[in-house]
């Protein structure tokens, strides 16, 4: 990407209306996302969830769904406990971000986007734990945020980006190849700028910026490498961008893998087949959770109205 294009992209992202009018809870939520789970106060999460009637209703419905054991929970607090802090945080983030994007600007289906992002979050975190990366929470967040650039591209370059996706899907090839070709930059570039703007740490910015660039990865730090590998694994397990890619990936010879092995020798003896089977199981659950949350949120306003009229949401802390 040349300097002029970069400056232009930066100023367009800065002036992005929908991001600057992001829901008020996004800022405290982003702060909370970066905390390790033992430092999070459940009351704080309950407060954030309760801030918005439709989000609270969504969480309650999910906690009461067969996916989580068909219970009869009535308070936001019990729903948050049933879903688990981690899941609630990412659902909350997803619903908030969804709210900032007008319906006609979605190029990748919201369901596909969140399956991929939440899948990556979980896989990055699990892999981080395997290699004993010191901050698995940060790894989770890096996975959740790594593709924000896709949303930026959807909002700012809707038609061009739609064409990127169309061609990528038609040829079953990775999306960033066509972004580079058609837009002149990729979601890594726009994601990097947005993450900087949102004040994320350097490592998180690096993960968003470098996760597709094998030449940058060896020097981009372990988090970017973990995200790159998780992204590949998710795409190999049908949690990609909503179309089938034709790929065969030998992780062992991937530059990011080798860079990680140099830092974390435990990785060399990792049973990757077993790890894959472990995440296969988890991914089915992520897909089901995202479907439950975001297929409802497609009719988001309806949900919100229903919650407001029935008054079924109660807060108890």
């Amino acid at each position: 990407m040349n300097a002029k294009l970069q400056a232009d992209l930066r100023s367009r992202i800065q002036n992005l209306d929908s991001i600057s009018t992001a829901p008020a809870i996004l800022t405290p939520l982003l702060e909370m996302l970066q905390l390790p789970s033992e430092k999070i106060r459940i009351e704080k999460v309950v407060e954030l969830v309760s801030y918005d009637g439709s989000i609270a209703a969504q969480c309650l419905r999910l906690a009461n769904s067969p996916l989580f054991g068909s219970r009869y929970l009535e308070t936001v607090q019990s729903a948050v406990m049933a879903l688990g802090l981690e899941r609630v945080r990412s659902i909350l983030f997803g619903l908030c971000v969804n709210r900032t994007i007008p319906q006609d600007k979605w190029v990748i289906a919201p369901e596909a986007y969140w399956k991929h992002s939440m899948g990556c979050a979980l896989v990055t975190q699990r892999m981080a734990k395997k290699v004993e990366y010191p901050e698995p929470e940060k790894a989770y967040l890096a996975g959740l945020l790594h593709d924000l650039g896709l949303l930026v591209n959807s909002i700012l370059y809707t038609e061009e980006f739609r064409e990127c996706l169309r061609q990528a899907a038609e040829q079953h090839l990775p999306l960033h190849i066509f972004e580079e070709r058609i837009l002149g930059f990729t979601h890594c570039d726009s994601g990097q700028i947005l993450c900087q703007q949102w004040g994320f740490s350097k490592e998180l910015v690096q993960a968003a910026a470098c996760h597709h660039d094998v030449s940058l990865l060896p020097t981009a730090g372990p988090l970017a490498c973990l995200v790159h590998l998780s992204d590949l694994l998710c795409r190999m397990r049908y949690l990609g961008y909503g179309y089938d890619e034709i790929l065969g990936i030998e992780l062992g010879s991937d530059a990011a893998w080798q860079a990680l092995v140099a830092n974390y020798p435990a990785l060399e003896n990792m049973d990757l087949a077993r790890f894959t089977l472990d995440i296969d199981g988890a991914m089915d659950q992520i897909a089901a959770t995202v479907e439950a949350v975001f297929s409802n949120s497609a009719a988001g306003n309806k949900t919100s109205a229903a919650a407001a009229t029935t008054g079924s949401v109660t807060t108890k802390s």
Binding site: L232, L233, R235, M236, R237, Y238, D244, E245, I246, L247, G248, I249, E250, L251, G252, S253, L272, A273, T276
Partner: peptide
């Protein structure tokens, strides 16, 4: 060598 394909793995 373990290779990942969409929905499956194989040994190369």
């Amino acid at each position: 060598r373990l290779v990942h394909f969409p929905g499956t793995t194989a040994y190369l």
